[in-house]
Simulated scan of single mutants.
Amino acid sequence: MVRHECGFEAPIHCKRCGRPLENNERTGLYCPHCGRRVSMLCPGCGRLW
């Protein structure tokens, strides 16, 4: 489960390799396995994750 700063939590998986994503304050959402960076809007508040 990845948690957004507004409190919304969701299980988000990488589209490339299917593994769970991690959230880092500096880089945002990323996949620790393949290195893919993900930009998406938070469904809870509508701001960039």
Rank of each mutant, 00 (worst) to 15 (best):
M1L: 12
V2A: 04
R3A: 07
R3V: 12
R3W: 04
H4Q: 07
H4N: 03
H4Y: 12
E5P: 00
E5Q: 05
E5A: 13
E5Y: 11
C6F: 03
C6R: 08
G7Y: 06
F8D: 00
F8V: 03
A10E: 14
A10P: 01
A10Q: 15
P11H: 05
P11W: 00
I12F: 11
H13P: 00
H13D: 05
C14V: 10
K15W: 10
K15F: 07
K15N: 14
R16P: 02
R16A: 15
C17R: 05
C17H: 12
C17A: 13
C17F: 12
G18E: 09
G18L: 07
G18M: 13
G18W: 06
G18F: 11
G18H: 07
R19L: 10
R19V: 05
R19S: 07
P20W: 01
P20G: 09
P20D: 10
P20S: 10
P20R: 10
P20I: 05
L21F: 01
L21M: 11
L21T: 05
L21R: 01
E22C: 07
N23H: 15
N24D: 15
N24Y: 08
E25R: 15
E25L: 15
R26M: 12
R26T: 11
R26V: 14
R26Y: 11
R26P: 01
T27F: 15
T27N: 12
T27S: 14
T27P: 00
G28W: 02
G28R: 05
L29M: 11
L29D: 04
L29A: 07
Y30K: 06
Y30W: 14
Y30T: 05
C31H: 10
C31V: 11
C31F: 08
P32D: 04
H33W: 15
H33M: 10
C34H: 07
C34N: 09
G35M: 10
G35L: 10
G35Q: 07
R36V: 14
R36F: 13
R36G: 03
R37G: 01
R37I: 06
V38S: 02
S39L: 13
S39W: 07
M40W: 02
M40A: 15
L41C: 02
C42I: 06
C42E: 03
C42G: 02
G44R: 02
C45H: 06
C45V: 03
C45N: 03
G46I: 01
R47W: 03
R47A: 10
L48H: 04
L48T: 12
L48R: 13
L48G: 07
W49E: 00
